[in-house]
Simulated scan of single mutants.
Amino acid sequence: MKAIDILNSHKLKRTSCREGIIDIVMEAGQALSENEIRERLTGNYDRTTFYRSFKTLVEHRIIHKIVVDNQVVKYALDNQVTHKSAHAHFYCNTCNTVKCMDDIPVQHYNLPDGYAEEETEVLIKGTCSVCKDQA
């Protein structure tokens, strides 16, 4: 899947900034922070253009936010784009990476009457295999 196809399927205008952000997130193989995405983005985009493009991609559920804590937020392609089911994320306390754990599905809970689930997030914190091997 290409960035242009993703934008077209969401009926969004094609811009080089939007395409660049999607390409970076797709190629990364792990979730990235806004700063990591901005640093990897080629082209001379001002802050306003970057943040408007970024916000649009989040609002249209092309990329989604993974909140680790009040200081660390990472982004990855949304399940709507990847066609993956809801899954857990793993945060490595040593190298600060976030990985999708596709084989660990998110459990759905039976809520009391009157409650409606909008989203459920599962974040597992620990040490990744790479950091564990280096210890």
Results as ranks from 00 to 15, higher is better:
residue 133 D to P: 00
residue 123 L to E: 02
residue 71 Q to E: 13
residue 6 I to M: 10
residue 82 T to A: 07
residue 119 E to K: 14
residue 91 Y to D: 07
residue 22 I to V: 09
residue 70 N to D: 15
residue 3 A to M: 06
residue 11 K to R: 14
residue 45 Y to K: 07
residue 5 D to T: 09
residue 45 Y to G: 05
residue 115 Y to Q: 14
residue 123 L to K: 08
residue 122 V to F: 07
residue 30 Q to R: 14
residue 78 D to Q: 05
residue 79 N to A: 08
residue 37 I to D: 10
residue 127 T to C: 06
residue 6 I to G: 08
residue 4 I to M: 12
residue 42 T to R: 15
residue 114 G to M: 07
residue 75 Y to R: 02
residue 31 A to D: 06
residue 93 N to V: 09
residue 82 T to C: 05
residue 118 E to S: 12
residue 55 K to E: 10
residue 90 F to K: 13
residue 81 V to S: 06
residue 68 V to G: 05
residue 24 I to R: 05
residue 120 T to G: 01
residue 96 N to M: 04
residue 114 G to E: 07
residue 84 K to V: 02
residue 91 Y to F: 15
residue 32 L to Y: 02
residue 49 T to N: 09
residue 125 K to I: 03
residue 30 Q to E: 13
residue 77 L to V: 07
residue 124 I to E: 02
residue 24 I to Q: 04
residue 111 L to P: 01
residue 2 K to V: 03
residue 62 I to V: 10
residue 72 V to K: 08
residue 99 K to Y: 00
residue 47 R to T: 11
residue 72 V to P: 00
residue 6 I to H: 10
residue 105 P to C: 09
residue 88 A to I: 02
residue 96 N to R: 12
residue 105 P to E: 13
residue 129 S to K: 13
residue 8 N to V: 03
residue 11 K to T: 05
residue 121 E to W: 00
residue 51 Y to I: 01
residue 43 G to R: 11
residue 106 V to P: 10
residue 68 V to N: 07
residue 37 I to W: 07
residue 60 H to N: 15
residue 120 T to Y: 01
residue 125 K to T: 14
residue 101 M to K: 14
residue 79 N to E: 13
residue 51 Y to T: 05
residue 82 T to M: 03
residue 36 E to T: 00
residue 23 D to F: 00
residue 97 T to H: 08
residue 31 A to N: 05
residue 39 E to H: 06
residue 38 R to V: 01
residue 54 F to A: 05
residue 3 A to W: 06
residue 112 P to Y: 03
residue 70 N to A: 15
